[in-house]
Nucleic acid binder design. Structure first.
Length: 514
RNA sequence: GGUCCCAUCGUCUAAUGGUUAGGACAGCGGGCUUUCAAUCCGCUAAUACGAGUUCGAAUCUCGUUGGGACCA
């Protein structure tokens, strides 16, 4: 395999990679990885990363997805050197704006008899296909229209007969030299004369891609393995159009096919079975660093024990040789782990900013015209600093930002709802709970407002608990009465943030419950 | 069905002819703790199978099996 890695000897700056999404939906996890790897390879080699929109086949109402894809890429931190929004020397970067170019090359192939008009109807083609399959052959075009005389073609065209344009394929072996997989051989007799355009202004995928990759001087085509079977067709077109002598072979792009990202059932990650849109993960509260770190390790690794990589460090470490050949299963638990890690890395101020939209969306908090934060239920004005305190005690418990709502809801609710059984620690009875709550009330009400700090609370409450030799009997009811939850942050820090008044009120309410 | 690709713990992967097959996530157990986390310590767990080459194979070759992609 090593002898195939001739790209290493290319001069810096000679590398041009492209990511070419069809904007038929939002950015898919797999597409994001393809974009990332193209970006990383280009940046590692001081080359250019090009964004091209493959929208010849797209209806107008789907064009909203272009905007979403660009925005999501930017959110991930993947920036392109040339693209539909920022231009470049090889534009336009939207295939729908390049129809004249395709038309020119389509005509060229037609003139040189390397392609031809095919007037076969769907029904005729279907019938042929059926027959070939019944004989156990690979279905391919039989060549009915391959050798029409020019007059006949003119006549058919004149009659406005429906046609497609087919590329003429001669029997030969096509070698795809994949930088990851090595030499792969395809037999063109199995391909047959394949369609390259529905009409002159409507090129088909394999044709427009092949043309653009050459026109845009792409040095490396890095894409998913699912496109491997298309490669010989694209090579055929590129050779027919651009290859006139042996030396020119160097200008044809190198191929790199990435292993597929698989769902939990080991088949191609599908929208039907799992969430696949990057924007969905963003909405759920995954950080871009976590997603980048996660997808970079899907089918690639640096070959070290280090697992945490920023986009910048990935650029430094990336290499094609470390790309895996087999498919990689998408493991959500690992994404969660990474996200938790990156959440813990964030400053409290930034994390609070990130969590705020979730609290606002859940209607616990609102911002008034004077930019003050209001707890909706109590109409209480709170400071950003107050929110920071809340977020800080949940930072290490957070796996994704959206979880902040159910974790901290008790700070924003006037009245808590929970089962009274929850107040009991281990074997406690109703009377024991009342007893503990009474003790808490007495001790807590003695503490002055100015001494209401978590360290102080801890010192006093632990001392009180010592009298009874059992911390749980005192602290568990306290914590549950304040939060209404089985699990939460520590009681002292919660009590500090909640404040004396609310804590005592919640002790009362807990007693009423029993 | 045809063509192509792939195969190390459950998952992501390391080991490019010689390691006790390493790491991470998950799982399990423990320490710390009122709970859940975080954190620290530990445990379970893999070279698909069969031949061949070799003193020696996860690694090279062939076959089998299995999985996947594409075309229809």
């Amino acid at each position: 395999m090593k002898e195939n890695l001739d790209f290493q000897f290319l001069k810096p700056g000679a590398i041009r990679t492209r990511y070419a999404p069809a904007p038929t939906g939002s950015l898919h996890i797999g597409s994001a990885r393809t974009a990332l790897f193209n970006y990383l390879f280009a940046k590692k080699n001081q080359g250019s990363f090009i964004l091209r929109i493959e929208d010849t086949d797209i209806s107008r109402n789907e064009s909203i997805f272009e905007k979403e894809i660009l925005e999501t890429l930017k959110w991930l931190g993947i920036e392109w050197d040339e693209g539909p929004d920022n231009g470049g020397s090889f534009g336009p970067y939207r295939q729908s704006e390049r129809l004249e170019i395709y038309k020119k090359y389509l005509k060229k192939l037609l003139d040189e008899n390397k392609a031809y008009y095919c007037f076969c109807t769907e029904e005729e083609l279907d019938a042929q296909r059926q027959e070939q399959m019944s004989r156990g052959e690979a279905p391919k075009y039989s060549g009915t229209c391959a050798n029409f005389a020019p007059e006949e073609i003119k006549k058919n065209l004149g009659e406005k007969k429906k046609y497609i344009i087919r590329f003429r394929v001669y029997p030969q072996k096509i070698i795809v030299n994949d930088l990851i997989r090595g030499v792969i051989e395809f037999d063109t007799t199995l391909i047959g004369d394949f369609p390259i355009a529905k009409f002159l202004e409507y090129p088909l995928y394999n044709f427009s891609v092949a043309v653009d990759d050459i026109e845009m001087k792409i040095s490396h085509v890095i894409r998913g393995e699912d496109l491997l079977p298309n490669t010989p067709k694209q090579i055929l077109i590129q050779e027919a159009l651009f290859l006139h002598s042996r030396e020119e072979k160097l200008s044809l792009p190198s191929w790199v096919h990435l292993p597929l990202i698989l769902g939990s059932d080991r088949s191609k990650l599908s929208k039907r079975r799992e969430a696949t849109a990057v924007s969905d993960y963003k909405k759920d509260g995954y950080l871009s660093e976590a997603i980048i770190n996660f997808i970079s390790f899907l089918g690639w690794n640096p070959g070290t024990n280090r697992e945490i990589y920023s986009l910048a460090s990935l650029v430094k470490e990336f290499s094609l040789e470390k790309i895996q050949k087999s498919g990689a299963v998408f493991n959500l638990k690992r994404l969660d782990f990474l996200n938790g890690f990156y959440i813990r890395q964030r400053s409290i101020e930034k994390l609070t900013d990130l969590c705020l939209p979730y609290l606002i969306k859940s209607k616990f908090i609102s911002i008034d015209s004077k930019k003050r934060y209001i707890i909706n239920e109590m109409k209480e004005i709170i400071s950003f600093n107050y929110l920071e305190k809340i977020i800080s005690i949940y930072q290490e418990r957070l796996k994704k930002l959206s979880e902040i709502v159910e974790l901290t809801d008790f700070f924003f609710k006037d009245k808590l709802e929970y089962a009274k059984e929850l107040l009991k620690w281990r074997q406690m009875k109703d009377e024991d709970v009342i007893l503990s709550l009474n003790r808490l009330e007495i001790v807590l009400s003695k503490i002055q407002e100015e001494d209401w700090h978590k360290d102080n609370l801890q010192r006093i409450l632990l001392a009180e608990a010592e009298k009874n030799s059992n911390r749980g009997e005192l602290l568990w009811p306290l914590r549950v009465a304040m939060t209404g939850k089985e699990n939460s942050a520590g009681p002292f820090e919660i009590a500090e943030i909640l404040g004396k008044e609310k804590v005592l009120k919640r002790m009362q309410e807990a007693k009423c419950l029993i």
